[in-house]
Nucleic acid binder design. Structure first.
Length: 113
DNA sequence: ATGTTGACGCATG
DNA sequence: CCATGCGCCAACA
């Protein structure tokens, strides 16, 4: 069981209409937020390289993980189409203000034990 | 073993 | 609000 597998398993539990943050996922797994970002970044690489694992990574709702300020962190990457993450979230009912920020108080995934 | 790389987060100016 | 700086750590070459 690799670290990134633990990240994917947890991210899959984020329900539609909710979001989490790199920090929150990291805290739950005892990982640095950067490692969470690294694991999700890996999805984009696997997605464009290996077709064998594509079915696995496509099951991970990576778009539901945003940064602690409530904003999208993927727009500066050339891997991922501009505003793809935002569009996916909007389709799930997440609203963004004009500064591209969403209300974490409202949408943050609440952990249930 | 060693150095590098980040989808981060927080503190500070 | 913007800009650095730094700690963080799994994976990879």
């Amino acid at each position: 069981m690799k670290t990134y597998d633990r990240v994917y398993i947890l991210v899959r539990k984020i329900p539609k209409g909710k979001v989490s943050t790199y920090g929150q996922i990291g805290q739950m797994l005892g990982l640095n937020p950067r490692v969470v970002g690294w694991a999700l970044n890996r999805l984009a690489k696997v997605k464009s390289n290996s077709k064998d694992l594509q079915w696995q990574v496509s099951a991970v709702p990576w778009q539901r993980v945003i940064n602690s300020k409530g904003k999208i962190s993927t727009n500066k990457l050339h891997n991922i189409p501009l505003d793809l993450q935002k569009k996916l979230l909007i389709k799930e009912g997440i609203k963004f203000n004009k500064e591209g920020k969403t209300d974490l108080k409202k949408y943050m995934w609440e952990i249930k034990l």
